[in-house]
């Protein structure tokens, strides 16, 4: 129902140009031979969800809470090329009903981002990036216990394109879009029904996902702050039927708005805090999630030149 964590992780990683979580100065990528690492804690919850297009609550779920503690690391191979990795540990629970909570290590995501172009333009500079990401489950968790499954258990490959305009006064605008190919998943059961069809197999076709993010912000000195809008569309898949349980290949769409603040602390040096939140304003086969995230990141410099 709300397996947004993976997507959130992807957006975090791949829209680095947008959020610049890993940047330590004016650049849009990490400088060469620097390593930014830390943990982020995310708390998501929803009470209402969309059963297909019908918004409803469910008193046998109550409020569904998903929490995750995510390890995060990004390394600057060069000023133009960064590589990143995340691994979350996820907990889910429902406040009502009898369904048991679930927890476990979810998916490893590895990504590389490359700055294609950076040119001066007017009172600032214009840059474009491409990124590729790979994610895969690190444990054999089940995707067949939604909304309490910790993830969708699909291996994914994703490509992203980002454009960014940064003004000299600190204001910026950014837009990024990605296409994610999701590999099929296997269930513990030999048959299932979805999207008006009965399947006599344990293999589930996973529709691909398109997402984009637009954000406007300010970034100067130790402070970065922005507001953003994201849209995730699943390119196929069935709706949750009336009073049915959600299914791994459902057409999960979500429109979210949010805000972010990141600040490099004066002490300890090279330590940054990151806070962000978002709210699902519209969706299909997902929960109406309120999501809060807090992170603590530390940057190591393996070179004397700190630019």
């Amino acid at each position: 129902m709300k397996r947004t964590l993976l997507i959130t992780a992807l957006i975090l990683l791949l829209s680095a140009g947008a959020m610049r979580a890993q940047t330590v100065n004016d650049g849009l990528t990490m400088p060469a031979k620097t390593f930014c690492t830390g943990f982020m804690f995310q708390h998501d919850q929803w009470k209402n969800y969309w059963e297909g297009t019908l918004k409803r609550d469910n008193q046998n779920i109550g409020t569904l809470t998903t929490q995750s503690l995510m390890y995060y690391g990004v390394y600057g191979i060069s000023k133009k090329l960064n590589v990143m990795a995340t691994v979350p540990y996820v907990w889910t629970k429902a406040s009502m009903g009898t369904l048991r909570p679930m927890e476990g290590v979810q998916d490893l995501t590895l990504a590389a981002k490359y700055r294609l172009l950076e040119v001066p333009a007017g009172p600032g500079k214009f840059a474009t990036f491409v990124a590729g990401a790979f994610s895969t489950p690190l444990t054999d968790y089940t995707p067949d216990f939604l909304p309490l499954s910790i993830g969708l258990a699909s291996t994914t490959l994703s490509g992203r394109f980002t454009t960014n305009y940064q003004m000299n006064n600190g204001l910026y605008i950014n837009a990024s879009a990605a296409y994610t190919n999701r590999f099929n998943v296997k269930l513990d059961r030999p048959a299932y029904y979805t999207d008006d069809k009965y399947y006599s197999t344990n293999e589930v076709w996973m529709p691909n996902v398109f997402d984009f993010i637009v954000d406007v912000g300010y970034h100067k000195g130790p402070l970065q702050t922005e507001v953003f809008y994201t849209q995730m569309n699943t390119l196929g898949g069935g709706d949750i039927r009336r009073q049915d349980m959600p299914f791994v290949s459902n057409k999960m769409n979500a429109s979210r708005v949010g805000a972010l603040v990141m600040y490099y602390l004066p002490f300890p040096k090279n330590m940054a805090v990151r806070l962000s939140g978002n709210y699902t304003v519209a969706g299909r086969n997902v929960g109406q999630t309120t999501s809060l995230l807090g992170g603590l990141l530390y940057t190591f410099y393996f070179t004397k030149n700190k630019d």
Partner: peptide, 8 residues
């Protein structure tokens, strides 16, 4: 990424 065949 775009051309994987995974029909079920």
């Amino acid at each position: 990424v775009m051309s994987c065949d995974k029909d079920v």
